[in-house]
Design a protein around this nucleic acid. Structure first.
Lengths: 281, 281
DNA sequence: GATAAAAATAAACCTACGTTATCGCACCAT
DNA sequence: ATGGTGCGATAACGTAGGTTTATTTTTATC
């Protein structure tokens, strides 16, 4: 199966219906696969950016480091996720990005990506959609940190991870590898490590999850989602729209006739190099 | 001055160097100016989206409403800001958006925007850059809420507002209208109204700011920025890049030779219809 | 296996916040 | 005047979660 060899093609074809020409272009796309190991920096803020990255295996994350030595995780990157989309334009890395696990990463030089983008508006749209998804995840994280308590916040994060991993998981198991240490989780959710620990205990007591090392088992996905006020819409709405055979809107002149029907009703109440990427200074 | 009549043209021409053709296209762009009043909803999550909006006068905001009745502001929109970029693709509004003040809003139907986007990669790039800026602001807010204490967080927000308003302000004054109630600020920063009040008092005591009703005076911008760990880079880096006469990268084949030099060095340590949009249920 | 380093847990303590409540003020309507 | 409403300030009190330190468990390395 040819899709498997090229992570970009794999990801985009899952998101939009590509034309044969698009597929051809993607197959001809120059890229370089790189082995990376846990803790390795992929780049730093301010570095010059000349490639787009697709995670092929393992997990990565981007983070902001503050002057007091603490850090805030801004995003996690799972297999298939694309990094550095916005940096196509600026040519400068905006955040520090490092690997959470060993893995493999696929590098596409900007020059060849530009060629591709110029040739295919499907691909352009797909990247745009992916940027949109990433922003939605970021917004939801803000909501978690700002408004939810520790249990809700952690539960929400776990639901999100499960949902994003779902396509890789066998149907009959609710367990998966979550390669974030409690320090990483704390940095992602704006909490302290000890409170992450406490909160895991609390969730375990309620029979919602079980965690052993880096292995998570969601015992009761539904109750967990309820307590977290988790609604997978923000992760999946774009998939639904673009996985169909409809043409792709962005830069397409006459799009009005196939605008998606709005079958979704929200539940809200408005009726009314070198060193390791750790936090310690 | 023709730029003034069309907010989109005004905004984009400040960001990228448009060709004469681009300007012509933008001038011919169909739009509709609408008067809006404080508290008015522009749209709700789940609504079908068929237009791009540019704020012409006044302030707006987007927010997520949680099932417990609380809300989280996700973004504020100032004159010149563009709303609904990502919704070009999905055709569905993702958040609730309302006005914080009376103002005017400029509506560009998707159909005409598609035509424009198909014709001009400069415009495409500009919208992409704006989406990027919005994401940067969102990320910085997450950092504030997750990692900074109340004083730092509020100070950072004030610095951000000042910086975004700077082009509209006379050089000799450090005061401006900040049309957010303490409730709005609380909803933006993940705090309670009383603590916003306390924190303002604290900042005022330190001689950093003065606030009266909706009028803010930043008494000591530099000290305020220091205490907030505020670095305007995230707001201005794209401006620097695109305000030059360089061609625009996105979808341009051969971009390598004019990639911007990386002169920036980060300071981090690594070596429902009708009702008012309020939070109370 | 032995040892060291990293990760998780636990307990004690503390504080930056949230919550609730009261009050003042400005504005508007009757 | 009177009452209603929205915004803001202040005080008293409670708590979720931070901090610190110590102990245990797990992983990694040889």
């Amino acid at each position: 199966m040819r899709n498997a060899t090229n992570p970009m093609l794999k990801r985009l074809s899952a998101l939009v219906s590509l034309t044969d020409v698009d597929v051809e272009l993607l197959e001809g796309l120059a890229f370089e696969m790189r082995e990376v190991s846990a803790g390795e920096w992929l780049w730093h803020e301010g570095d010059s950016a000349d490639s787009l990255l697709v995670v092929s295996e393992g997990w990565g994350c981007s983070a902001r480091y503050l002057s007091d030595g603490s850090r805030q995780l801004l995003a996690t990157y799972l297999p298939g996720d694309i990094l550095g989309i916005f940096e196509l334009l600026s040519g400068v890395r905006r955040n520090d990005v490092s690997m959470l696990t060993d893995g493999r990463v696929c590098e596409y030089p900007h020059s060849s990506v530009f060629t591709l983008l110029a040739a295919s508006n499907r691909v352009r749209s797909a990247l745009f959609v992916i940027a949109n998804q990433q922003q939605a995840i970021l917004a939801e994280r803000l909501v978690s940190v700002a408004r939810r308590n520790a249990r809700e916040s952690l539960a929400h994060f776990l639901c999100e991870c499960r949902e994003r991993l779902l396509e890789f998981l066998p149907d009959d198991v609710d367990g998966f590898q979550l390669p974030l240490s409690q320090q990483d989780l704390a940095d992602a959710l704006g909490m302290s490590t000890v409170h992450i620990s406490r909160t895991f205990s609390a969730l375990a007591c309620q029979g919602l999850v079980r965690r052993h090392h880096f292995h998570m088992v969601i015992l009761d996905p539904q109750r967990l989602a309820e307590m977290a006020d988790f609604d997978d819409h923000y992760l999946n709405c774009d998939k639904r729209i673009l996985a169909t055979n409809k043409p792709v809107p962005f830069t397409e002149p006459s799009a009005a006739e196939w605008l998606p029907s709005t079958d979704y009703v929200p539940k809200g109440p408005h009726v009314a190099e070198g060193d390791e990427p750790t936090a310690s200074s």
